[in-house]
């Protein structure tokens, strides 16, 4: 494995090498251990300023980045779309330039437009971390999902990972696909044909529209949230019908292997894409994902923010 990290930005997982992905996962092992210490804080990013710039609302990702930054001794400011000058007509670039003039070292960006983090990364000296851009990528979510699979199953290579739900609009699905296929997993996408088009097979995955055919062979089931805010009527069959056709119900969960992992990036819609009994059941690693997200984000902030620019 390449034993060095040289990137200042994390924009997506598509452009990372297998070595770079493994490098982040191994670094996350070290940072996960920090959570078990008496003093859960290390001085790695002391004196650095991190700006959480969330143009799209998100509580869980933002607080995860914020806590990760605290544990690395960085100073954090949070800016949300409604509280920023973007609502007064300032362009994204001008806002970011202003943040840089305040000597922000790391910019964590959540934006509704795909490519916004790259746009800024090319123009700023600061590190830019993509915290989700449109339907493009959500790299730290892809990494924490891979980390959780690797932790629980000891490997990723040759595992069959089934991703169910709204793939078309999902940056989580894309980051998962890039990451898991690089690490040797077999990936199957499941959902209605409107939300899981055959085109995805070009990414080296299998597409299925029949959940019951796929579940018995799954080593990991990753359920994506139905993004009501992005849905248009013509794509989506309706909540009741979706649950009947693609929900991981208590009855369907009986088809799963005993050691199959059940994952969900949250927030979960209980009774829609997953039944409560399954979300809280023995196969569920949903809360491990939250814990691991912190370790993975600490690793990413340390690596990208700790590089000389």
């Amino acid at each position: 494995m390449n034993e060095r990290w040289t990137r200042k930005d994390l924009l997506g997982l598509r452009e990372l090498s297998i070595d770079e992905i493994n490098f982040i996962l191994e670094t996350a092992d070290a940072f996960k251990q920090v959570g078990a210490r008496e003093i859960k804080k290390v001085p790695a990013l002391r004196g650095k300023t991190l700006v959480n710039f969330f143009v799209e609302p998100s509580t869980r990702t933002r607080t995860s980045f914020e806590l990760a930054a605290f544990r690395l001794s960085a100073d954090v400011i949070n800016i949300t779309a409604s509280g920023s000058s973007l609502t007064k007509g300032e362009t994204l670039k001008d806002t970011a330039k202003n943040l840089e003039a305040l000597h922000a070292d790391i910019l964590v960006l959540r934006h509704s437009s795909a490519g916004a983090p790259q746009f800024l990364a090319e123009r700023l000296k600061s590190s830019v971390i993509n915290a989700g851009d449109g339907a493009h990528e959500h790299p730290t979510q892809g990494l924490l999902d891979a980390y959780t699979i690797r932790e629980k199953r000891g490997k990723i290579d040759n595992l069959h990972v089934v991703i169910i739900g709204d793939i078309l609009f999902s940056r989580v699905a894309r980051s998962n696909i890039f990451c898991l296929t690089k690490l040797g997993a077999r990936v199957t996408l499941v959902g209605p044909s409107t939300l899981v088009p055959r085109d995805f097979e070009k990414l080296g995955v299998t597409v299925s529209h029949k959940i019951d055919n796929v579940l018995p062979d799954a080593d990991v089931v990753n359920l994506l949230r139905i993004q009501h805010e992005r849905q248009r009527k013509e794509y989506f069959p309706g909540t009741g019908e979706y649950t009947r056709l693609f929900g991981l119900t208590k009855a369907r969960a009986k088809m799963l292997k005993p050691d199959c992992l059940v994952m969900h990036p949250g927030p979960i819609n209980r009774g829609v894409e997953i039944d409560s009994e399954v979300a809280d059941g023995s196969r569920s690693v949903i809360l491990d994902q939250v814990t691991n997200g912190l370790a993975v984000r600490m690793a990413v902030l340390y690596l990208c923010g700790g590089i000389a620019t």
Binding site: E26, A30, F31, V42, P43, A44, K48
Partner: peptide
């Protein structure tokens, strides 16, 4: 005891070595 995350030269290097787990 891994010292990488406690070093005082973070931000001055062009490449970072892997951090190992302390135990």
């Amino acid at each position: 005891i891994d010292v990488a995350m406690h070093r005082d030269d973070v931000g001055t290097r062009r490449e970072l070595p892997v951090v190992r787990e302390s135990n």
